[in-house]
């Protein structure tokens, strides 16, 4: 394991930001810290980097106890949401910074900077100042700067959070491919479940300072540990006291044994998809299906329908976060 976090607790005054967190992050993988805003993701990342210190617990990086090491000695690359560029230095100088501090020979620095700028596709911008770059370019520069010192682990705190949706998507795909080339153990923070599911090898779900689940995207999606993980990874609705995904609900116009009876109160068409709101005894249920499916079914507002979870659908007991159903 590349990073071992054991029993880490962090308080800000009375507020518990991290509560006995235990996580092991595997070497060479791309791990996402996923969770809602204020959950403690940045705090954990900063503690790994040594930018904050834990109240209790320990951090080991590649087997070395780093708990009381200052950030300078951890050999960790950190990329910030708002780029944290050195404004008064050119792009090349920014990237060279860590190497110059280590007093590497000049020709080596020059060569490595060229190499890295090539890697992040900024070669032709080497002599620009950071304020002449776009946000995405700045973040790529920050990434090159962090990679320059050959860190044992690379930590990214919502690296694409300040960028617009399209650039974000491009950069996230690019990060995945970059990681496949560079293979440095990488941890990145995001509160976007799509980003985590698409890019990460492993996902750590953090909520209110606690780890809710650790697993691959498939595990998280197919075997959510609890209702929080299930509802955080995608849309959910409550059917008969169980949480289920809206597109995993089957709809019939005739009674089916064990199905829940209800009335369609609303039909909302969004692109290729249709969302039905069905009033049942246990509260409103949202059902998603394709337009074609709905046409074939022939249901409309006011129709009497019977609902049941599709075969093989993932369901979790509990009250959904989004809807207040009166559990039986």
């Amino acid at each position: 394991m590349s990073i071992d976090i054991t029993g880490v607790t962090k308080r800000f005054g009375d507020f518990v930001a991290l509560d006995d967190v235990n996580v092991s992050i595997p070497t060479g993988q791309l791990t996402a810290l996923l969770g809602p805003s204020g959950g403690g993701k940045s705090t954990l990342l900063r503690i790994i980097a040594g930018l904050d210190s834990a109240d209790t617990g320990s951090i080991r990086i590649e087997g070395t106890d780093a708990t009381s090491l200052p950030p300078q000695k951890r050999n960790v690359g950190f990329v910030f949401q708002h780029y944290a560029v050195f404004k008064h230095m050119s792009v090349a100088k920014n990237v060279a910074f860590g190497l110059e501090i280590r007093k590497r020979p000049k020709h080596e620095v020059t060569q490595r900077v060229e190499e890295l700028l090539g890697l992040v596709h900024l070669s032709q911008f080497a002599h620009r100042m950071p304020n002449q770059l776009s946000g995405g370019q700045r973040q790529r520069m920050a990434l090159a700067r962090a990679l320059a010192v050959e860190p044992t682990v690379l930590l990214l705190d919502e690296p694409f959070g300040a960028l617009d949706a399209k650039v974000r998507k491009e950069l996230r795909d690019w990060l995945r491919r970059l990681h496949d080339e560079v293979h440095v153990t990488t941890v990145f923070v995001t509160h976007d479940q799509e980003e985590a599911l698409e890019v990460a090898d492993e996902i750590v779900v953090i909520n209110e300072g606690r780890v809710e689940q650790i697993g691959s995207p498939e595990q998280l999606y197919d075997e959510p540990a609890n209702d929080f993980v299930m509802s955080f990874l995608g849309e959910v609705t409550t059917l008969d006291g169980r949480i289920v995904r809206p597109h995993d609900i089957e709809v019939e116009l005739a009674p089916v044994p064990g199905a829940v009876e209800g009335t369609v109160t609303r039909v909302l068409r969004v692109g290729f998809e249709v969302k039905l709101t069905v009033a049942t005894a246990g509260g409103d249920v949202t059902v998603a299906m394709t337009r074609t499916h709905l046409r074939g079914l022939g249901a409309d507002e006011g129709s009497r329908v019977w609902l049941y979870a599709a075969k093989g659908a993932v369901t979790v007991a509990g009250t959904a976060v989004k809807e207040t159903a009166v559990a039986g």
Partner: peptide, 10 residues
């Protein structure tokens, strides 16, 4: 964060 970036670069 600029100073923190510099610190983590050593």
């Amino acid at each position: 964060d600029v100073e923190e970036a510099a610190a983590s670069l050593g």
